Computed example of a mutant assay.
Amino acid sequence: MLWNPRYGGVDMGLAYADTHVPWIGTSVSLLQDVLSMHTVWSICVPIALVEVFSADRARPWLGRPGLALTGVVFVAGSAFLAVVQYQSGKFMASTAQFVGASVAVVALITAAFVVGRHRLRPRNAATPAPWLVGTVAFAAGSLYWARDTLLSESVSPWVPVTLWCVLAAGVAWLCARWSRSPGRSPQHRPALTAGALLTYVWLGFTHAREMDVPYGTALLGNVVFSAAAAALLGAAAVRLRRQAPAPEVG
């Protein structure tokens, strides 16, 4: 998707041509969109929601057999998609692009393990209420997805690229600061997750007209998935309430 100018039959090269950088072979704004969508909404939000329903968040989800089976399914699914996508568009990334992507993946995995093994020292910083943390997440996600609507067409395409860097750095700094605060509670992580998830709820309705299905079908699908998201958040809130320690009497 990053390098195929006709990925999925869509003219990606034209859609993201304004911020194309020849030496990396792709568009900076496309790279930002892919990183944002999959890092936050495809990966972090589902994991954080599942962890709400786990009694021990540090416990691995899978044993060795389950992990091995998941790995096999992942590799098989990736190979299947690679073959299907190549047959549909006859596009293959260059060796340098594959090597660069592989190096980035290995570096990120290594960084995740290194950071995970080192506990950051707590900071004497105030932590806002969970509802405010969720509001910040919702506002940041909404600001990102609404950037094309908020900015004039006459603005340079590199302005949203720069604003993305500022927004991503600011949210990362806030989350790191709040996570190290002594006042952090079990409700803060789900609140952050809820704000991000609710961003996708309103976003789905704005994409209804762009989908290659009847408008009514797209709206109905968004209603169903939005209701499911709300139900999941409600179940998570009930779970957190049950896990909260009972107040001391006397």
Rank of each mutant, 00 (worst) to 15 (best):
L67W: 01
D148A: 13
Y215I: 10
H118N: 07
R119P: 10
A129R: 14
T193R: 15
L151A: 15
G77R: 04
V103L: 12
P190N: 04
V155R: 15
G100Y: 12
S142M: 14
A237T: 10
V72K: 01
A93Q: 12
L69Y: 08
F74G: 04
A112D: 12
V213S: 04
C44F: 03
L30A: 04
A104M: 13
W41D: 06
E210A: 09
V84S: 04
V34D: 15
A111C: 12
D18C: 02
A235K: 04
F74D: 00
A140V: 15
P60A: 09
V72T: 00
D212N: 15
L167M: 10
V52N: 03
V75Q: 08
W173Y: 14
G13L: 09
S42M: 04
R189A: 14
V50K: 00
W41F: 12
S36V: 05
L35R: 01
W131P: 00
P22D: 05
L151G: 09
S36K: 00
P46I: 14
M1K: 00
V224H: 12
S142K: 01
L49R: 00
A230P: 02
G77A: 03
S226V: 13
V171L: 09
Q187Y: 05
L31V: 14
T39S: 08
I24V: 05
V75K: 08
D33Y: 03
R147K: 05
M1G: 01
V83A: 07
A101T: 07
G8Q: 06
V73I: 09
D11L: 08
P46K: 12
L108A: 10
L233N: 07
L132F: 01
W202I: 01
V75L: 13
S29H: 00
G195M: 02
Y16M: 04
V106G: 08
R117K: 11
A237N: 02
A82S: 10
A194H: 04
V72E: 03
G116L: 13
R119K: 12
N4L: 07
P65N: 11
N4S: 12
A112Y: 07
I24Q: 03
T127K: 12
S27G: 02
V103P: 11
V166K: 14
V171D: 08
L30R: 06
P60I: 05
T95A: 14
G13E: 15
L240M: 11
N222M: 08
L143N: 03
S185P: 02
A218S: 14
Q32M: 10
E248P: 06
R64C: 04
T162N: 09
P128K: 05
A218P: 02
R121Q: 11
Y7N: 04
V155P: 09
A17C: 10
A194K: 03
A218H: 06
G204C: 09
F98I: 05
L2G: 03
A140N: 09
L30N: 04
S88H: 01
L163A: 09
A104V: 15
V223C: 00
F205P: 10
T39M: 11
L219C: 01
A228P: 09
T110A: 15
V166L: 14
A137N: 14
V161L: 07
A79Q: 07
V133H: 07
H188M: 06
A218K: 06
L30D: 02
L233D: 07
R177M: 04
G25V: 07
M12W: 08
